[in-house]
Write a protein that binds this DNA or RNA. Structure first.
Lengths: 133, 133
DNA sequence: GACATACTTGACGTTGACGTAAGGCGTACG
DNA sequence: CGTACGCCTTACGTCAACGTCAAGTATGTC
């Protein structure tokens, strides 16, 4: 059974990040590891948040934007104040992401179209006029 | 009818970028405006490339990555050498983008799920136990 | 000729997201 | 006891993608 908390090294190995990155995220208030003496212990909540951070980054969100998104996820768990406002932020983000997805879908189609060209061309290079062997 | 070339200012107004950005892209070999004396003239090809640059940026591609993508688009037009290699780069990019799209779709679904919570909560805040007025 | 304007080329500044190096603390081992 | 880890903080370094500022050139225009 997985332990309740993880050390910084376990975190690094698990999620393929450096200690510096985790400390940096803490300093930016994206993670809130507890302390045992002077050492950090990362909870299940920190791990869930880190996964969302890494995912967000892959979409080009800035850390500050991700921090706002994380606020929303917290609200899902523990009902908080300021819900209406943060809710608006989230609707906004969601609309952005849907636009981005649609545009991405379109670009993929474009690119596939271009690749047809390359495909026929590459194929013709591998097949001389008449096959030998 | 649109002229064959555009000045740097026309480009800036059309695509909402700064002169500095266009010169920077030229220095990085993303654009190749011709010269009339010392001034730049941007061709139709430059405009097509700029659109792809701006689109690429929205997906978080680096300028260097975009430069590689642009090479591919050139191949679609004027058949070039090194096709097989660049073709491979493109298949790679395409796979990346499809993975990214799928993940984005999933994240959107997650986020919508969270928002249902917020929605019910916000609704309950606007409706006290029994309506007054 | 003086001036405005539109463009040019350096060159240094800025921001975000860390990398990296220096020096200190606490425990564990030989 | 020394020293070897593993972690800590502080602080300066780096890279991409431009912004910003200074100084120069060509063209028109009063």
């Amino acid at each position: 059974m997985s332990e309740a908390t993880m050390t910084i090294r376990e975190m690094c190995d698990t999620y393929d990040v450096t200690p510096r990155t985790l400390r940096f995220y803490e300093s930016k208030e994206l993670l809130f590891p507890i302390r045992e003496g002077q050492r950090r212990l990362f909870t299940k909540r920190d791990r869930a948040r880190l996964q969302l951070i890494l995912r967000g980054k892959r979409f080009g969100f800035s850390l500050e934007e991700i921090r706002q998104l994380l606020e929303l996820y917290d609200i899902g768990d523990q009902q908080h104040t300021q819900i209406a406002k943060t809710y608006e932020v989230a609707r906004q983000r969601l609309a952005d992401m849907e636009r981005q997805r649609d545009e991405l879908t379109e670009t993929i189609a474009d690119l596939k179209e271009q690749l047809k060209w390359g495909e026929r061309f590459v194929a013709s290079m591998n097949k001389p006029k008449r096959a030998a062997e």
